[in-house]
């Protein structure tokens, strides 16, 4: 049975997602990430072409399963090779490697600095100091829901400032 998946479309749609997941799991400082992403994408296409993927789940779920297995496999092998050295996933999104667009990052930093104190404070406590929603709420004397709303609004402001 021939299936009619548009492989090009699938590749361009899922490659960024797979890349994100792989980098987050093994750390973007690990040079192998690109090979692993390539393997996952190739494997996906092969399985679709050969008909092994029969559409019993969504394409997204199918690719996620392949990705997760490949990462588990990578970590297991790495452990076997060097007993003590286990790659750790990034504690935070890696500040240096994940910013692909340096200029954009610079601009974002500038806009952040110019935000009104109300929004700046919330981003400072929530993202810079890693406080939980509840802790931020307690510090500022507002409800946790309000914290989310403010973070959300601050992001919206930034988004618009950058678009301009």
């Amino acid at each position: 049975m021939k299936n009619s998946y548009d492989l090009k479309k699938i590749t361009s749609k899922y490659r960024p997602i797979v890349t994100f997941k792989v980098k987050k799991s093994i750390g973007s400082h690990t040079p192998e990430w690109e090979d692993i992403v390539n393997e996952i994408m190739l494997n996906t296409i092969e399985k679709i072409k050969s008909g092994e993927f029969k559409g019993e789940s969504s394409v997204g779920t199918f690719i996620y399963t392949i990705t997760r297995r490949r990462i588990v496999d990578y970590i297991r092998r790495k452990k076997r090779r060097a007993h003590k050295y286990i790659p750790e996933s990034d504690p935070f999104p890696d500040p240096h490697e994940q910013i692909e667009n340096k200029e954009r990052a610079e601009m974002l930093a500038k806009k952040l600095e110019e935000l009104k104190p109300k929004y700046k404070t919330i981003l400072y406590l929530y993202y810079y100091k890693d406080l939980s929603r509840r802790e931020v709420a307690q510090r500022l004397g507002i409800s946790p829901r309000k914290v989310s709303e403010r973070v959300h609004y601050a992001q919206k402001l930034l988004r618009n400032l950058i678009k301009k």
């Binding site: 997602i17 990705t67 999104p93 500040p95 990052a105 400072y124 810079y128």
Partner: peptide, 28 residues
């Protein structure tokens, strides 16, 4: 993996957090 909307948001937030972690000293 199935929700483009969430993935877009993840990317955006990830970028924001990265910048905050990287340049937070001067921003704040």
């Amino acid at each position: 993996f199935n929700c483009p909307r969430c993935f877009e948001q993840i990317k955006e937030k990830n970028e924001l957090i990265s910048v905050i972690k990287d340049k937070g000293d001067s921003i704040f």
